[in-house]
Design a binder for these strands. Sequence first.
DNA 1: TCATCTATATGCAAACTGCACCTAGATGAT
DNA 2: ATCATCTAGGTGCAGTTTGCATATAGATGA
Lengths: 131, 131
Amino acid sequence: MPGRRRGVQNRCGRRINRFLEPCLLLLLHGGESHGYELLENLRRFGFSENPADSSTIYRILRSLENKGFITSRWAEGDSGPARRVYSLSPEGDGYLQMWVGDLEETDRILHRFFSEYQNHMELHHSNGKKT
Amino acid sequence: MPGRRRGVQNRCGRRINRFLEPCLLLLLHGGESHGYELLENLRRFGFSENPADSSTIYRILRSLENKGFITSRWAEGDSGPARRVYSLSPEGDGYLQMWVGDLEETDRILHRFFSEYQNHMELHHSNGKKT
DNA sequence: TCATCTATATGCAAACTGCACCTAGATGAT
DNA sequence: ATCATCTAGGTGCAGTTTGCATATAGATGA
């Protein structure tokens, strides 16, 4: 069902920087896989119908391989064209750990934003009127 | 103390896309302010010593003004050069609401990532070995 | 006069992303 | 056989964002 997404896209973009990278690493942490399959499995992370363009996925995978965080081999499938199957390397596992720490920091910042926001809203609520 | 940050930067960049935008909007929600002051106040959000380059701030403010979400006027300060003082517009207030909803969605995705990650870790923990 | 602080801004390059488009094997229908 | 379609991987290009360097300029004090 996935693959090339044609037509108009949401184009909101307000997400996390390079967030697809740790998602792909986490999927590969569960076992080797190829790009097309990874693209389908990305939906698990709750992107509402908008994970990414396939070109983005393939490019991220290529860059992860260039950095030595994953390795690839060609595999003849039981059906369809050959697949480039990726596996997580030990370095990639460490990189995933780093990503997790970084995202936890991001999460803290996010919650500081929410609490600041709620502070403001309570102050404005007390004067009863909101233009 | 802030201003031009010279020297080497962390260059990790794994943060939230355009996250500075809602932070600036929220600060302006608390009252008008100018760029240099906003830059200082950004630290409240818990960016660990790395909020943003001043050029980024000024450019985001300019783009928010172009979209009509904030307005500006020149103000002669009691000291130092003139300042461009920004105020949140009603449209900007709505835009901030939208951002909050969007970041809540981001937060949900983030936590789905964390729970997937913990699932994996528990599975790997059971076989007793972790490099 | 000169350095420094405050304040705003531009130029440039690198990175990331979305969209359009291309290649190519496999599969099934006509 | 030919064609459309699905699977699978990929490139080219343009728009956006960002970090770093740098420019401009008023104010202030040595």
